[in-house]
Design a protein around this nucleic acid. Sequence first.
DNA 1: TTGGCATAGTGAGGTGCCTCACTATAGGGA
DNA 2: TCCCTATAGTGAGGCACCTCACTATGCCAA
Lengths: 179, 179
Amino acid sequence: MPTQVAITHGEVLEDSRGYLYDAAMRRAIIEMGGSRSADVLEALGALRLAAKLIHDASDRFAERHGLSDSRARVLTRLDRSPKRRLPLGALAEGLSVAPRTMTDIVDVLERDGLVKRIADPADGRSVLAEITPAGKAKINTIRRDATARQAAVAKDFTADQLVELRHLSLMLVQNLRGR
Amino acid sequence: MPTQVAITHGEVLEDSRGYLYDAAMRRAIIEMGGSRSADVLEALGALRLAAKLIHDASDRFAERHGLSDSRARVLTRLDRSPKRRLPLGALAEGLSVAPRTMTDIVDVLERDGLVKRIADPADGRSVLAEITPAGKAKINTIRRDATARQAAVAKDFTADQLVELRHLSLMLVQNLRGR
DNA sequence: TTGGCATAGTGAGGTGCCTCACTATAGGGA
DNA sequence: TCCCTATAGTGAGGCACCTCACTATGCCAA
């Protein structure tokens, strides 16, 4: 799942007011009349690029421990859950992926001995993923380091900027989920 | 490539200062001492969620025209390029994906008759993807609508908010690319 | 009680994404 | 000229992601 790729393109520059922009992206966005559309596309493009780089970095980190970003997230959720086990459907919802995808992720985790599938005594349709001792050991080994790395990515952000980034992102989430 | 999934979870709420936050995400992030780390994780989580929903929506839209988000982006770049053709490597860099991935994407586009691989007369190693008339027709049919849809996602954003979102995203990009 | 619908998970099949290994061509020295 | 290294693309293999179809179970209403 790693990515190292090293895309050299996409120079990030500063405009006259001190705001960053991506030169290649701006060039790529045809100047459509109002430029309002262009501003939106630039912002969304920047957000998507940031998300991809975050994902790549997270995957590369997890891969050094024999995990992937998704598998690490599943283990984290299981380890934090009271009974150390959750139905696949709940895990899928928590990671915002389709149920079928969680089947694939748990397949790999189970093959690697990090989780075990068990029947749900309360619902015959449901399958619970239960974290194994090996899974617990693995996730505890990397958790602290993983958190520190994530936090370091935003080391030059003020508290207000973090709030603003979250707020603007969730405005988009609302627009995309609503309606 | 579509996604309709309809994740119902992840309620987006407003805090006392009017800033949005995701209740489930906040609950999921263990209160680590300083809470600075928690704030970062919340912001990054929100950004990644927004990016995923944007991608899903884009894919679902493209799928209605027999494309995917990635394939539409490749066609757009080819159609905008002066000679209507670009080497696979340049396309990969433009989309921030590994070269191998572009081979896969062009395979599908070529199978569908939307691009054609041609030898690069100037470099025997290079392979150019050239958009076909069918590819041009396809991308021109959806371009205007696609732009409008993307723009609508941020319809309640002020111009300043768009700039701020771009700026904060690119700060992350710099941190992730630098070093 | 039983039929009918909703829900949980998986098999089949396909794209997007990656790494690693390999081929082939380019290009700069010695 | 001849290597030696760098670059461009692809084959092989593998995970993450999806839709669609199907099974099995749960559940409600008649």
